[in-house]
Amino acid sequence: MSLQPAISDSAARIRATGRAPQLAIVLGSGWDGISSAVDDPLDIPYGELPAFPKLAIAGHAGVLRLGRIGGREVALLRGRKHTYESGDAAAMKGALRTLAAIGCGTVLLTNAAGSLDPAMRPGSLMLIEDHLNIVQRTPLHDEPGNERFVNMADAYDPALRRQAKDAAAAAGITLHQGVYAWVLGPQFETPAEIRMLQRLGAQAVGMSTVAETILCRHAGLKVLGISMLTNMGCGMEAEVLSHAHTLNTADATRDTAAKALQAIIPALSI
C-alpha cells in the first residue's frame, strides 16, 4: 500500500473512535509512564494503522493511546521506529502525517539521550532548544519540487519551550535546556566523537527525534522536544554503555518524566 492511502485509512480508523486529539506525544524509552495518567484511554495497536511503523526495539510498545491528560485530548505514540533499524529517515512519516490529517497541530517529541554536560546528570530532563543533524539524513528526499525545502529556524517552538519550562518549574522539576545532536547509531559514540559534539555546541546526543522534527515542520506541526538523560557520554566517566543500561536508567526516571509531562501538557497553548 502506498503511503497516502495508508495515511487516509489510518486517519479514518482514528476518526471512527470519535476522538480528536489536539496534542500528539511520541514516547521514547523511559517516557511510557505517562500512559497510565491518560483518562478514558482507548488503545489502537500500530498494526491496525497501516501508515504506522512495525516496531522491534525493547521499550517501545507499538500502541496509539487516545484519551485526555489534564483535560486536553491527546494521542500517545507508544514507541517509534528509528533510522538505525532500516536506514530509513522517513520511518515515522506515515504516523506523523496521519496525526496532521486528523487535525492534531502540535507534537511533543521525547527521547532518551546521553548527556555531554557534566552539570546534567543521568536522570535529568533537557528541553531541546535546537538540534544538530550530524548524520545529514533527511526524510524529505522524495518530496516533490520546492515543497522539500523547509525553514528550520525555531524548529522547537519558542513559546511552547517557555511554557514547558515554567510549568516544570512550578511543579518543582528542573528542566535543563540545550542542543540535541542526532547520530545514526545503533552503536554508541566513541570518546573522540563525544569531544567533537561538545565542541560543536551540543549538550545531549541521541539516535532519534531530528528526522521526526523535520517531518513535523514539513507538515506544519508545532514541535516541543524533551530528552531524558540516561548516561554520560562515552569517555566522560567510567560507566559502560549498553541499551540495557539506558533502559535501566530510563525506568528509574519514569516517574519524574511522567510528573513533568502531567505539568507541561495542560500548560501548552496549542
Results as ranks from 00 to 15, higher is better:
M1H: 11
Q4E: 06
A6T: 07
I7P: 01
A16H: 14
G18F: 08
R19W: 13
L23A: 01
A24Y: 03
G28E: 09
G28P: 07
G28Q: 05
S29T: 15
S35C: 09
V38D: 02
V38W: 00
P45W: 08
E48G: 10
E48L: 10
P50W: 01
A51L: 09
F52E: 05
F52I: 12
L55M: 05
I57D: 10
G59M: 06
V63A: 03
L66P: 01
G67F: 08
L77K: 02
R80I: 03
E85G: 12
E85C: 11
S86W: 11
A91S: 11
M92T: 01
K93S: 15
L99C: 04
I102G: 02
G105V: 06
V107T: 11
A113T: 01
G114N: 03
L116A: 03
P118S: 09
A119H: 12
M120A: 09
S124G: 15
M126Q: 06
L127I: 00
I128L: 04
I128N: 00
E129A: 12
Q136N: 15
R137F: 15
L140S: 04
H141I: 15
E143S: 14
P144M: 11
G145C: 12
N146P: 14
A155F: 12
P158Q: 08
P158W: 05
Q163A: 13
A169H: 11
I173T: 03
I173W: 03
I173D: 06
Q177F: 00
G178W: 04
V179G: 09
W182H: 13
L184M: 13
T190A: 09
P191F: 01
E193F: 11
Q198S: 10
L200P: 09
L200Y: 10
L200E: 07
G206L: 02
M207T: 02
T209Y: 09
T209K: 00
V210K: 01
T213F: 03
T213K: 10
L215P: 10
L221W: 03
V223Q: 05
I226L: 00
I226D: 04
S227K: 02
M228I: 12
C234F: 10
G235T: 04
T246F: 12
A250Y: 02
A250N: 08
D251H: 15
T253G: 13
A257F: 06
A257Y: 07
I265C: 04
L268I: 00
L268M: 07
